[in-house]
Amino acid sequence: MIWQLDVIILTLVIICGLAAISIRDLLGAAVLFSAYSFMMCLLWAIMGAVDVAFTEASVGAGVSTVFFVAAVFRTTRSSKD
């Protein structure tokens, strides 16, 4: 585990999380959440949890983004806050 790399990616994760909840466009929020999941996956790969990172790469960054996009497509794209 390399702590310098860990700190950088942890910062990126927090930035992506903040951006995902503050953007007004819901499709953009879904894509930013996908970026958040992928950064999280890198963080877990650094921490040596390869199986968990693999799961997060396929589940969090892959399928859950598709679910979000499908739900946004079936509802509305704009949000008030």
């Binding site: 199986d51 693999f54 799961t55 396929s58 589940v59 892959g62 399928v63 598709v66």
Partner: peptide, 8 residues
């Protein structure tokens, strides 16, 4: 993991 990739 494999199941999720297959579903994807």
């Amino acid at each position: 993991q494999g199941g999720v990739i297959f579903g994807a």
